[in-house]
Amino acid sequence: MAEYATPQVQKSRAMATALSELTAHHRVACEPYGRIVDAVAPGFSAATSVDAVPHLPVSLFKSHELRSIPREDVFKTLTSSGTTGQQPSRIFLDRESAAQQTRTLSTTMQHWLGPVRLPMLIADTRSVLKDRTQFSARGAGILGMAPFGRDHLYLMDASADERDAWLTKHAGTPVLVFGFTFMVWEQLPSGIDLSGGILIHSGGWKRLADQAVTPAAFRAQMRARTQIERVHNFYGMAEQTGTVYVECEHGALHAPDRGDVVIRDPVSWAPAARGETGVIEVVSTLPRSYPGHALLTEDLGRVVAVDDCPCGRLGQAIEIQGRVPKAELRGCSDTAAPPQ
């Protein structure tokens, strides 16, 4: 079935079943996960709704090595940097899980980009891929998106002449522009013609929100600079790579077929009413090699559409409303020592 074509009631039921099956799988395959479920959801066997599936705090992947495959089957370890100085998340994939992520991301992206690979402009520098010590969400994002384009040009590595030559070469063809939100904002120049193209960006609004740039202002600014009309933000966690929430023409981030959200009230932790702000829990039927199928994020958001987005896509769509501010858990250890 095509993406965004399943009504929410039907989708929820299927997801509850799939997520319950994953819970059972991980309880057996990942002992620490099994112990957590035994403690937080004693007697759990199967959920009849998505919100009843036990979930983990996403930061647990920073402090603990959670694997549902033997070490020798680890094909790839994804790391996400998170905040500076913090231990990164470690996500363990076997060959099959890595392939599944790629396939799922492809299905979602093809919905937005079409089946043909477009010439691709990347608002970044190639060196972000090379320096493995700083291998960041930025690098991972570029590596994940690059296969959806061709003849890649890294904006920061190209001279104005090289850039113009590249644009001339692809004149008349729609161009795919990709980058981290703040990199696009800082690097995409004015006065180039990208009309007919499509801009995909991601990576958090914090830096732009600090400068009071709203998503609408971002879109308007991009159009003013380059005449680009189709601008899509997307939301996703490194801990659920492959499951992305892409922004439609009406500014709503749509849950893909393999993923969904539960917005949780921050006091009762029950699902919040539609439109109410809460903490975002993301669920995905992809993770089999690590117990990351239901994760409580540190992001705030709300549901803006359920099968009724004016864009016509079915399922839930959300709006992100920022991160939960880090609390200063003070501690006897912070009298004078510099942050490590």
């Binding site: 996960y33 112990r35 937080v40 705090p57 647990l60 603990h64 921050p266 880090k326």
Partner: peptide
């Protein structure tokens, strides 16, 4: 408590649950 402290505490607690079996886990409130 601030929500950030609640989330940090829960992440810590789940980590403790992962590390060893416990008799019982009770979240009486945030």
């Amino acid at each position: 408590l601030e929500l950030g402290a609640v989330l940090a505490k829960r992440a810590y607690a789940y980590g403790a649950l992962a590390d060893r079996p416990v008799r019982r886990y009770r979240e009486l409130s945030n």
